[in-house]
Design a binder for these strands. Structure first.
Lengths: 345, 345
DNA sequence: AGCAGTGATTAAAGCGTTTTAATTCATGGA
DNA sequence: TCCATGAATTAAAACGCTTTAATCACTGCT
């Protein structure tokens, strides 16, 4: 009493309580069991019953309460997704995850990691909601943590390679993707192709390795050159400035990702260096950004839709078909040649 | 039998079932009631009991099941948020909503509207989860629909003005914001300032009106000129092309939003028109995009953090303090002068 | 007439919490 | 000694569904 917290959820205005299964049942003079059967489309009830129930439910504006049904059925039909809310690529993935999940009767709960909210906080939230499987986009957790998590629930790591952790992985072959970019540049006639690195991490390593082996494959071993970079526009700017100040411009630069590439692009243009006339620049990810007319960046697409679909499929295989052996699905990325690459000067 | 759907959620590997309240209770030889009390921090249990329960819960790795507790308490402590997954501005808002909600013990459920998923689908999902209040970011629903919804649950419209619908509104004064941009340009010495419109909608109207009245306020009535535009880069490009082809360039352009401004910027630059040397361009929203060095766009910030905080506060007032009268919170946006505006040529 | 078989329906027992009302057990004052 | 007082604890009833096992009403067969 005298307690601020006592009002309780007020509903809108004079909201009548939302109808329950029992209300629908009473309206047609049946048991809640029958109504439940009809509403879930389970075979059994007669056609006549079915029609009457459906009508009554519609009349009452009945909406099943997922909370109760989750509790009763021990199935939430919920997939938990952890995203980085700032990533445009994740946004795209979420959209596709949504449609894929919906098609097979699952729903998504999104949980974001931010500066103030770690990945494991996000995960705990999802588990508290009884998500049946977790899809982690570009997870940053330690291998051991993930392995531990995979013991509690099916986990699908999307975009991030990880082995021996008992979880599923859906990703594109990053090394192959970077290789395609290198090949593309070589075909155009480039030899002096520098790679601007992305910092540290699994994905970063894969892409760098892709550059190295592609250069060797093209017998350009002597030209291999990796520059320290990063995953942001700022890192790209710094890298560009480095080139400009050293006066030692290669004919082409391949960057860790689009954001870095865009940073370089901006710096080059501002310095009056023509791209792609004087130097070709390529990124990675096919961000929405890179598609902008103002950048028109050559890049590599990760095929978000297919990855999303595979992730959902992997989850469903475990949940509904009893698969327990981990699976790794590696898709081939595709080169998107746009306007920032051309023949060397 | 012989049924594909029969496996049930498999858990990870040899997952032991997650501990329940009862398991904790059994471990300390108390009732579930006491344990529940302790775990929720409700006063009553003795200090000794409290300690023992806490320890047992920790030992067992107990995590309360939100589903069950929601059902039992009739309180989900969940705020539903509808976003457009593609909007960078919404992403920013979500981050702030998260922290604001967390501070007062609420959680967020995100639901996105996409091409294939309407706003009302998103809303139904949220209600099925028993969200206690809904926060709609840049809602696109009809007034009547929103009014109807507000009868079912507290609704906060963020960014979108709407009156007489019995719901709360948190927004910035769009007309004032655009007015600030116009004033800024006038101060720089511009007279010929054109506005590129955003299509149709409440926000669109407000901004256009802001332009008109600011022009009048600066006794530039004769220069008022509104061009048909849109909310996308493409629309901006078209508008720019229109100016270029007609040869009738104003000295400054104010656009509906950043995306449109960036489209124009790109088109101008490509055509060799110097910005801001030859023409000044300003946007609206302070998108992440606009902050990019390559654009460095003069724009208007909507103060995402403050808006998020206000929205959560509004929800809590209704849920926990029993407020029922609708409230409108209008914040003043702030001009961010960057590099795309300067003195007229 | 009696019975197995079939299809439609339902009673009742959960699911894992919260919450209310009741119970237990000291304590201290009369 | 007795009883009111209060603190600590708990039994049991929700919450709104699903699910299992049982019941019921027919049908057609012997």
């Amino acid at each position: 009493m005298g307690d601020f917290e006592s009002a309780g959820p007020a509903g809108g205005n004079g909201a009548s309580p939302r109808p329950r299964l029992e209300d629908v049942a009473a309206r047609v003079g049946l048991s809640t069991a029958s109504v439940s059967l009809v509403l879930r489309g389970v075979p059994g009830p007669s056609e006549r019953t079915r029609q009457r129930v459906l009508k009554a439910a519609a009349d009452l504006g009945y909406r099943p309460d997922r909370t109760a049904s989750t509790l009763a059925s021990r199935r939430s039909r919920l997939l938990g997704v952890v995203i980085d809310v700032h990533s445009p690529f994740h946004a795209e993935l979420v959209e596709h995850l949504h449609t894929a999940a919906e098609e097979i009767g699952y729903d998504l709960v999104l949980s974001t990691r931010t500066r103030t909210r770690t990945e494991s906080t996000a995960i705990e939230t999802l588990l508290a909601f009884r998500c049946e499987a977790l899809i982690l986009l570009g997870s940053e957790s330690a291998d051991a943590e993930l392995a531990e998590l995979a013991r509690r629930a099916p986990v699908i790591s999307l975009g991030r390679r990880i082995i021996k952790a008992g979880l599923d992985v859906v990703r594109t072959a990053d090394d192959v993707g970077v290789g395609q970019v290198v090949d593309h540049l070589v075909e155009l006639g480039h030899h002096s192709i520098v790679y601007v690195d992305g910092g540290k991490g699994v994905i970063v390593t894969d892409r760098r390795r892709g550059y190295r082996s592609a250069m060797r494959r093209n017998t350009l071993d002597a030209h291999i050159r990796v520059l320290h970079g990063g995953a942001t526009e700022h890192a790209g700017e710094l890298a560009a400035r480095h080139f400009l100040e050293s006066g030692d411009l290669p004919t082409a630069v391949v960057t860790y990702n689009d954001q870095c590439a865009i940073g370089m692009l901006t710096a080059f243009r501002r310095a009056g260096v023509d791209v792609p006339g004087k130097i070709s620049v390529a990124g990675y990810d096919d961000d929405t950004l890179s598609r902008l007319a103002s950048f028109d960046l050559t890049t590599v697409s990760q095929n978000a839709e297919e990855q999303a679909r595979q992730a959902v499929t992997a989850a469903v295989e475990r949940l509904d078909h009893g698969r327990t052996a981990p699976r790794e699905i590696v898709l081939t990325p595709v080169l998107i040649a746009r306007g920032t690459t051309s023949e060397p000067r």
